[in-house]
Nucleic acid binder design. Structure first.
Length: 509
RNA sequence: GCCCCCAUAGUCUAGUGGACCAGGACGUCACCCUUUCAAGGUGAAGAUCGCGGGUUCGAAUCCCGCUGGGGGUACCA
């Protein structure tokens, strides 16, 4: 548990390097967050500079998704992460897109070939597949058999001359060990014999992750690699690669994995996994950041709510746990609710609710402007039911009866409370109607006094009077407090709806 | 199969040899508040600190083994 001491003894440069193959996964967002907190928070607290770099690893042309890069940049900004260098803002080590850096990798591969530390491999995909098949059948560990590692120079020349395709593979040492020092796990020793001659350069001239990440991290002066735990198995190869180039590897920290509730990888089967989905469902970026920060990190085991600034002020790599964490949707919801109900200002919350109402056709673009009356209207509504809002996307359903003139049809039976009957309910509504005719609902205290008086006069319990009114004006049995609900709905609608309820109950009964 | 990582309640976690018959939070349950639903308040249940061996006067904390979970095993990242 006690992590090795992390020495930040120089200016820090970290990077997040997504591949534009789709939407940004929460795991990726968490990794980005930790990188960002390390550079912008911890390093700066210690008096060093901390630079955040974004690099696009688009070396797999098959999985490339159009527009994915922009989507990742956008959602990262929404999340609250910013960066100093990247594909959109440039920087001293541009370009920050790997497909634009191809010559660098090809030169690197050639350099290793020249040094005898890498070799061309002419094996066809078919042969490799067949090889794996045979190994599987014999119960042998799968892996490249290094067939091309020792072919004669003349043969290589001949194949090259014949225009045969090839990949470049790393010539791993066949014996000995490689040590990897992980900032949160300490040292691990790997047997070189277990490590493969990984492909460095693909036959299409693009590098694999292994080559590109080593060359770029070195070229971009990355000081700390903080990436997912799934990279632990290839870390020793990367270390060997740095040595092959004669470079000092950056410090490495592998962040704990985020697991699905049932175990295993978090996938769509369990719920949302992409940041865009969480955004669309009405999760707040600050709630997401707060929750994700606590997945694998904690300050003291007690403090739960952290603003972005508090995270910057407190987060440290030293307190990142090595063990994987299960994603808990319920707890995320709780954080969202905390921010909605207790942390955001009413104006802020209102501004975030508005787009969801517009999408649902419950507000117009006019509500976007805080100086507009429609915004004020939504703010009044938000004020009375924010404590039952968990997701912003809940807003349209929760708020609809405040925002539409005509209530959708509802069952007349709902007007009759459990411990009451139709006659009582009708009497209650008729009495209430008289009260609403006599006084304005914007005086909550006065209306409450009048209605309580009415209940007493009719010999009804408060609930027997209030519930029919509630259903009459909202169409449902659940709502905010009755008097504030009446106030926000307003006199005209209240009278019309109570009148309609009386009619419904009379004709229905 | 092989390699690697991890291991405190259902979940996130605190805990770095004695103040821990293990603290906080989510979730669950109960009660209070109450015009409904929430929110809020109070409280409860829930962990033989995965198991077995050591080391030590003393271990959740150190060591070894096992088990379990997870990751990797691609011309994907």
């Amino acid at each position: 548990m006690s992590n090795p001491t992390i020495a930040i003894d120089r200016d820090v440069r970290v990077r997040y390097a997504p591949s534009p193959t789709g939407l940004l996964h929460v795991g990726g967002a968490r990794t980005t967050l930790f990188n960002w907190l390390f550079a912008r928070g911890e390093a700066k607290r210690l008096g060093f500079d901390g630079a955040m770099i974004l690099r696009i690893e688009d070396t797999d042309r098959n999985r490339l998704v159009e527009g994915a890069t922009q989507g990742i940049l956008d959602i990262l900004s929404w999340f609250g992460i910013d960066w100093d260098e990247g594909p959109d803002v440039g920087g001293p080590y541009a370009p920050y897109v790997q497909s634009e850096r191809l010559p660098l990798y090809q030169q690197g591969a050639q350099e290793l070939i020249d040094k005898g530390l890498a070799y061309r491999c002419f094996c066809s995909p078919q042969r490799l597949q067949q090889l794996r098949e045979e190994q599987r059948q014999k119960g042998l560990p799968p892996g490249y058999d290094r067939h091309c590692r020792s072919i004669a120079k003349e043969e290589i020349e001949a194949k090259l001359a014949a225009g045969e395709g090839y990949v470049v593979r790393f010539a791993m040492p066949r014996d000995g060990t490689t040590e990897v020092y992980d900032l949160i796990r300490g040292e691990s020793t790997f047997q070189n014999a277990n490590l493969e001659d990984l492909v460095l350069l693909k036959s299409d001239g693009y590098p694999t992750y292994h080559l590109a990440n080593v060359i770029d991290d070195h070229d971009m002066q990355i000081t700390h690699i903080m990436r997912g735990e799934e990279w632990i198995p290839t870390a020793p190869v990367h270390v060997r690669l740095y040595h092959a180039f004669g470079w000092e590897p950056p410090a490495i920290a592998h962040m704990p994995l985020i697991l699905a509730p049932g175990g295993g990888k978090l996938s769509k089967r369990h719920g949302s996994t992409a940041m865009e989905e969480f955004k669309a469902q009405g999760y707040l970026p600050e709630a997401l950041m707060n929750y994700l920060a606590l997945l694998g990190w904690s300050l003291d085991g007690t403090t739960e709510i952290f603003s972005r600034e508090e995270l910057l002020a407190n987060w440290s790599l030293e307190r990142v746990s090595p063990s994987p964490a299960t994603f808990d949707y319920d707890k995320l919801r709780w954080f969202n609710q905390q921010y909605i109900n207790h942390i955001l200002t009413l104006d802020d919350l209102t501004a975030r609710v508005v787009p969801f109402l517009i999408d649902a056709g419950l507000a117009t673009d006019g509500a976007l402007d805080p100086s507009n009356a429609e915004f004020a209207r939504v703010r009044d509504v938000t004020a009375v039911l924010k404590d039952r809002l968990v997701l912003l996307s809940d807003a349209p359903d929760l708020m609809s009866f405040f925002l539409v003139d005509e209530l959708p049809p509802y069952d007349a039976a709902k007007l009759i409370p459990k411990k009451s009957d139709a006659t009582q309910a009708l009497t209650a509504l008729q009495g209430a109607f008289a009260v609403f005719e006599a006084g304005a609902v914007d005086d909550e205290a006065a209306i409450e006094a009048s209605l309580r008086e009415l209940a007493e006069k009719l010999g009804l319990k408060a609930g027997q009077l209030f519930m029919p009114i509630r259903v009459a004006v909202t169409g449902r049995t659940e709502s905010p407090g009755l008097f504030e609900t009446l106030r926000v709905i307003g006199d005209d609608w209240v009278r019309a709806r109570v009148r309609a309820a009386i009619e419904l109950l009379s004709t229905d009964g």
